[in-house]
Design a protein around this nucleic acid. Structure first.
Lengths: 110, 110
DNA sequence: CAGATTCATAACCGATTGGCTATGACTAAA
DNA sequence: TTTAGTCATAGCCAATCGGTTATGAATCTG
């Protein structure tokens, strides 16, 4: 938890941009969508959307599967775990009554 | 949760940089420290450290109090709440058994 | 007082970022 | 087989970022 985790780093970087976070949130709330669908209502061009999706994908936060000429992207449930772990760890410095802390510490020792 | 929260935005931005995250982590683990203390072992110059601290401070993640010629910075416990809320909300799309979800939803409606 | 220490700010610089348009590959439809 | 639709990539550009050195204000120390 104290050493640099490349994946955690990518996640934080990916979420740094509000537009990118909005795309992720839409995929969470409204389910899998095509690039075309995501571009509508995004206020940016399709290539810009594709770029953001590429960043999210390389961080493991979303996945995309090609269906004909479309690509359907969906949020990746497990991808938030590193963020949750990090947050839980540093929150635990004040909230000692964190339920999963013991398990978390075990995972860290590995 | 769906609309843009300036504070949440600042937090995500502040944590995007690994050096900045490392500074925050040190303040969490080792307690309040002066700029001089933080600069030692940071591998960057003192002005760079001061800059990072300014970003963290403006995001509300740390606070600094002047003591003579020194400034002592400390991590701010409550500052992580927006991040925790956001994460809990979007994690809840898969883990429906999130305990605090009901309370969270109430807070959102306000 | 004189010198040293601590820190923030300013000015600068190269690299990265986030947007755009243009384009081409590929697929679906006419 | 055209024609239209979907998407990713490339190339470009202005703005931001993360670092540096220089400097000055403020405080401690000899």
């Amino acid at each position: 938890m104290t050493q640099t985790d490349p994946n955690r780093d990518q996640i934080f970087r990916a979420f740094a941009d509000p537009t990118r976070r909005a795309l992720f949130e839409r995929l969470c709330r409204d389910g899998a969508q095509t690039v075309h669908s995501l571009t509508k209502g995004a206020a940016i061009s399709q290539p810009a959307v594709s770029k953001h999706l590429a960043v999210l994908k390389s961080a493991g936060l979303i996945s995309g599967q090609v269906q004909g000429r479309e690509t359907r992207y969906s949020a990746e449930p497990k991808a938030l775990v590193p963020l949750t772990d990090w947050l839980a760890f540093y929150t635990s410095f004040w909230e000692t009554k964190f339920d999963g802390l013991t398990d978390l510490l075990k995972r860290m020792d590995q």
